[in-house]
């Protein structure tokens, strides 16, 4: 089971630049939908990749859903070579996204993101409007269901 507060603490204590997206962002805005992993868009600057590697190193990150024993090294080289990583860690499941459809990269999303005070730390999270655009762009059936709820949340907030 994903330990959201411990994962967020691991990231913020290492000063990783990231934005909470996906289901966890929906929860921040009042969603009643269950999510079992933490999705983040992370800044891909060199310094931030170093910080991200350090943040998760002690939590045994490994690729989620692959045959056990598949070689995987959690290091800077791996992060530089890939963009999106679906990981299991000792703190639970986390998806590291370099960019998201309908939103773009960390730098694209940063200005519209909202700041959360959460579990004694501060982190960025997609706004409802950004989440709606991302879900529209993704367009899978489950995204359309989530989109309906987000639009309902937007209506309740207005």
């Amino acid at each position: 089971m994903t330990d959201f507060d411990a994962l967020l603490a691991a990231l913020t204590s290492h000063e990783v630049a990231f934005i909470v997206v996906g289901g966890a962002a929906g929860i921040a805005h009042g969603s009643a939908r269950l999510t079992e992993d933490l999705d983040i868009v992370y800044d891909r600057s060199s310094g931030n990749l170093v910080r991200l590697v350090a943040a998760l190193s002690e939590h045994n990150p490994y690729l989620r859903g692959v045959p056990p024993g598949l070689p995987f090294h959690w290091d800077l080289t791996t992060l530089r070579r890939g963009l999106n990583f679906t990981l299991v860690t000792s703190l639970g499941d986390i998806d590291l996204l370099g960019e998201i459809p309908g939103g773009g990269s960390y730098s694209d999303l940063r200005s519209g993101a909202v700041e959360l005070n959460l579990f004694g730390t501060q982190c960025l999270c997609l706004s409802v409007a950004q989440l709606i655009r991302a879900k529209r762009a993704a367009g899978r059936p489950r995204d359309l269901e989530a989109l309906a709820e987000l639009e309902a949340i937007e209506e309740e907030l207005s």
């Binding site: 709606i132 359309l144 269901e145 989109l147 709820e149 639009e151 309902a152």
Partner: peptide, 21 residues
């Protein structure tokens, strides 16, 4: 938090799901 999505297009599938929210 944040601004409205400001997209007035109504997707009939999304509107159908919304009825059950």
């Amino acid at each position: 938090f944040g601004e409205d999505s400001q997209d007035s297009e109504k997707d009939p599938v999304v509107e159908a799901y919304k009825k059950d929210i």
